[in-house]
Design a protein around this nucleic acid. Structure first.
Lengths: 183, 183
DNA sequence: TGGGTCATGTAACCTGTTACATGATTAG
DNA sequence: CTAATCATGTAACAGGTTACATGACCCA
């Protein structure tokens, strides 16, 4: 259900094609939602059937035609209704394959598990380094669209991603220490 | 795919019915994975077809019969193979409906958004309070099964849940301050 | 008399993932 | 010459959610 609203939110900034939406989605909403290209096209179809969107085809001679989507009044209403209702259920649920493995790793040697955690920690540091780039992306969007207000909220959500990875890193260090204490 | 291994891991401790598995899953793996009862029964069926499990029916006169599942050698091999391979891809992806709403809340008043974040913060504190109970659950399991080694890793994964919620709380406070600075 | 526990699931639906298909243009 | 970009998707499958069904027992 949330994917629809993520797309609606982006469509609310203006007319856009599926292809561009896909890129915008992956640049901006990626901190808190992920979607495959095929899923985006499917949702666009679905929302057009619901009457939340309309589309027009822009003919191009040299390149493939573009299918430009616009949000309708009904779509805008849906978006506003969704924004207005709070939804904190399931907000704090985690899904982590790594933690599941750790959970069942009592049979492995402590050494093995420490090295598993060190790999995890190294990955955290890689991710943190990648995040340095995102500030630039936000700055770009902010200047392109001229919406300073939105940039504030984008920055806040990006900050969550940063805190999250920092927390994962802290967790790894703490767990390594705990396991080292067992030896 | 991960749900299968979570169930396999629990089945590796000993024979168990779907009903009991469902409860054990919700007590122990809930920090990093969630599953509906119907999904658990479906996976058990699937793994029996794959030859990872066998089942025997225990007849009861007063109560419904029990279907006891046991892990097979093939299932144990699958579990070990899964435990051995590292899988950190997608590990740091977040899905948060709350953050998505915040992202699109530039049109709302700063006051409204502050109050939204305060609700979120209050929920974090509720969750933190609930976590106090989990230490007891782990202690229970540890004494029932007598597996001290496992209890260490269970504790580590539970700690992740704690750090995660604490991080969400810190995030909320920081974001509230940032928005208050805008007024 | 109503709700909880024990114990099994099925059916339908929605969401997410992976792989495939087309075909032209442009940059290295 | 090869890979990337522009631009559209479809098909099949896997995984997750919601609702429903059965039936007895026990506790307040």
């Amino acid at each position: 259900m949330s994917l629809k609203y993520g797309l609606l939110g982006l469509l609310n900034y203006g007319k856009i094609t599926g292809y561009e939406l896909d890129k915008a989605f992956k640049d901006s909403l990626c901190f808190f939602w992920q979607a495959q290209t095929s899923q985006i096209y499917r949702e666009l179809n679905g929302m057009e059937n619901l009457g939340w969107l309309t589309s027009e085809i822009v003919f191009q001679t040299e390149k493939p035609n573009r299918k430009l989507y616009s949000i309708t009044d009904s779509g805008r209403q849906e978006l506003q209704a969704w924004l207005a209702q709070s939804s904190l259920d399931n907000e704090f649920q985690i899904r982590s394959v790594f933690l599941m493995k750790l959970f069942f790793s009592g049979g492995k040697s402590v050494q093995e598990n420490i090295s598993m955690l060190k790999d995890y920690k190294a990955r955290c540091m890689d991710e943190l380094a990648d995040l340095q780039k995102t500030d630039n992306i936000i700055e770009n969007y902010s200047q392109k669209t001229g919406k300073k207000q939105d940039a504030v909220y984008w920055g806040i959500t990006a900050r969550f991603g940063e805190l999250h990875i920092q927390m994962c890193l802290d967790f790894a260090e703490e767990a390594i220490k705990k396991l080292e204490g067992l030896q």
